[in-house]
Design a protein around this nucleic acid. Structure first.
Lengths: 240, 240
DNA sequence: ATCCCGTTGTGATCCGGCTCACAGCCGGTC
DNA sequence: GACCGGCTGTGAGCCGGATCACAACGGGAT
């Protein structure tokens, strides 16, 4: 469907890095140097990039596609923590502290990634205070997200967590249609369930409960949000 | 019981900051300057320091006592995320990104804290790459902890989470006695429950289940671990 | 058109943990 | 000592979601 981007010219690489938030205001020559030594890596949907526990000596920038960041539990269970989109950077934790990867990463769609090696990156980090500053901001943002996730697990049931997630998806990837906000990302109910740490069946039942109340409309795998306010309310622990 | 430390001399302040991991290798004059402008703040057990949502314009270093870091949910429920001990630093997220506090902080024992104001701290941060580097490492460590917490919530039941927590507490605060590893921190079952996001009753029942199997011994509010290996096993999702 | 395989839809059953309701207990305080 | 407030111990009942087991659907490949 999407045009495959199998290669990236030098100019495109520079653009990608410069466009990324963490390299804003960083010395341009240094960024260009990084762009020069970066590897291009393409992945097909479903292909594995790295696993929890691996040594992590690279930082990734998404040029194209979608990468699922997840952790695994007993019996093959998986919890999806985030989806990385074009322009996003990930893999910074293990790169920065030199320990093993805390999560796994898998292509959720065909992808093109820029791979920045550890040593050239750390070299720029050592000399450029702006990069350090932006990395700190990135890490703070991640911390806030993580804390939110913990809060959701601790205080909300399936219904509340699903409501929040749909609300978030509708805002981030919603397309306005006459029926309501259509959620752009094609997510199966199983994938949705994996983002919430619940079963697919339970998600299915809650979606239909909302469809019955006209909060949502379900149309062959796509979800259309008809009543954002009701979702918002359901996400609050104050029940209706 | 503990000797109250109501004041800290200039020398002690410097020592505290220098001993803190984030100020290692940072220009000594700068650290001393920070120590000079830092405020001393004492708190009695139960006293509130800041709340989720507040503006956060200070960094705290624990000189003495214990600070509980927590988030709140519906109906007054609380989840304890961490306990800060002497030598620990906290409150960095809101300080660094300028947004509101992600957590609340309450004294879990009488405390003496050093309060570093935003602007002098950021000034040193701007000029000293080592401080930035250490902050990045601190944030990475927090991220790892958070990810672990999420994993626990997603994949472990009460039994597994409690086993892990006790194991951790025994290692961090265990005192060897003839009966086994006595957990030093005086934690009520409610406090334990708050660290796991479960009810006090459920914790009580699991503790007694283990006591019956001689994994633990319960002695007037104190927990003695008799069989660390069994705890470790219970923390694995592979059941015994 | 046919065959698949991944997805959706839905009931039956089971179980962990919550809620509620008390009953000792232990340590302080007056 | 007598009283009180916070902790501990424990049972009854309930409920949200997991598990299991199918049925039906839809879209791609051949």
């Amino acid at each position: 469907m999407a045009t495959e981007q199998l290669t990236l010219g030098p100019e495109e690489r520079r653009k990608l890095l410069r466009g990324s938030f963490i390299f804003r205001d960083v010395d341009e020559a240094a960024v260009d140097r990084l762009a020069g030594v970066a590897q291009l890596r393409t992945l097909e949907r479903g292909q594995h990039l790295f696993s929890q526990g691996d040594d992590g000596n690279a930082l990734y920038a998404v040029a194209n596609g979608l990468v699922r960041i997840w952790i695994g539990g007993a019996a093959g269970k998986e919890l999806t923590l985030a989806m990385m989109e074009p322009g996003d950077v990930f893999g910074e934790i293990a790169l920065l502290d030199g320990l093993s990867r805390t999560t796994s990463a898998t292509a959720a769609a065909d992808c093109a990634l820029l791979v920045l090696g550890r040593s050239p990156f750390l070299e720029v980090l050592r000399t450029d205070g702006n990069l350090a500053q932006h990395l700190i901001e990135l890490l703070c943002e991640r911390m806030r997200n993580n804390t939110e996730t913990i809060s959701d697990f601790a205080f909300l049931d399936l219904r509340g967590r699903l409501a929040r997630k749909l609300h978030e998806l509708a805002i981030a990837h919603g397309e306005q249609t006459k029926a309501g906000l259509l959620i752009g990302l094609r997510l199966s109910q199983s994938e949705l369930a994996q983002m919430l740490g619940v079963t697919r069946e339970a998600v299915n039942k809650q979606l239909h409960a909302w469809a019955d109340k006209s909060v949502l409309k379900l149309d062959k795998g796509k979800v259309v949000v008809r009543d954002m306010a009701a979702l918002k309310r359901a996400a609050d622990p104050v029940r209706d």
